[in-house]
Simulated assay, not measured.
Amino acid sequence: MLWYHIVFLAVIQGLTEFLPISSSAHLILPAQLLHWPDQGLAFDVAVHVGTLIAIVGYFRKDIAQIVVAWCVSIRDKRSTSNSRLAWWICLATLPACVAGLLFDDLISTHLRSLEVIAYTTIGFGVLLWFSDKYGASQKTEEDFGLKSVLYIGFAQALALIPGTSRSGITMTAARFLGFSRECAARFSFLLSIPLILAAGGLKSIELVSSDIAVDWASIFMGVILSAISAYLCIYLFLKWLNKIGFFPFFVYRLVLGIALLLIVYL
């Protein structure tokens, strides 16, 4: 890849991993529209590592409290709000893991087209706006239960389809269930950690077992840029979320989806 390919893709990955606009779609589009070369497995690992560094760095205190509470709950059989949150994150992660193992090849082969991305970008964007406009906002993390967590977990599994957006669909599900914007966003971000870790780990195993030559300068640049852009994205998104809501993201998704449909059909 050329240097500006690396910069663009790393920054895009960092921003779109946590904004409700689909990172997978935005990483597919440059190759589809601009005929750029595929970024390759090594670069995928790099940007996953970068976004993982960002999310762990931003929520480091919360993660430490959650992990400690979870370990104590296993040892002492004593439940706290943080230990329950840890179990909810584990439970909500399972549907996406199972769906990924079962349908990854099918999705990679048949659902990475511009047409699919266009329709999912529009459709799930409408759902995001509708959930935010008409969903209640009273519930907090204390109100999570088995049904609500599984609902969010199964919604997250849909994000395997390009254009859906993992963060977007989990926030949509949480808003439909009546959780506040801040709670929906925070749970979605914490929920991303096991999946990013799993995806990065699997890609790392594939990379180690392959004969792919690694351009370490590109890898280092990808990690740094994706980590910085992701950290800034999380900070600004949580800061402005109550002021702007999800409507700007709905508009962006609508415009992008319509533009892609025009490219497909014209």
Score class of each variant (00 low, 15 high):
C90Q: 03
V67K: 08
R166W: 04
I21F: 09
V208I: 15
D76I: 02
S79G: 00
F8A: 14
I193W: 07
S165Y: 10
F250R: 10
I117C: 02
V72H: 10
Y4L: 09
S218W: 10
V223P: 12
A174C: 03
L29M: 13
R253L: 03
F8C: 06
L160G: 08
D76R: 14
V72Q: 15
A46G: 11
N82Q: 15
S148E: 12
L111Q: 07
K77G: 12
D105N: 14
L238F: 07
V214E: 07
V255H: 01
W87K: 10
I263R: 13
G178H: 06
F187R: 00
G100E: 03
E182W: 00
V126M: 12
F250T: 08
D44Q: 06
I122R: 11
F179G: 14
A136D: 15
I196H: 05
I152L: 01
A118S: 14
L114K: 11
F179S: 02
M171D: 05
A174L: 00
Q156M: 01
Y4W: 13
G222Q: 09
F249S: 05
V72R: 15
L101A: 14
I244M: 13
V214A: 12
Y252Q: 02
S23Q: 09
I74F: 11
P194S: 05
E206A: 15
L146A: 07
P162H: 01
F43I: 13
I6K: 11
L19F: 09
V11S: 01
I193C: 01
K243E: 11
Y235Q: 10
L177W: 08
V67Y: 05
A69H: 12
I55M: 03
Y231A: 11
L191R: 05
F43E: 09
L177T: 07
P248C: 06
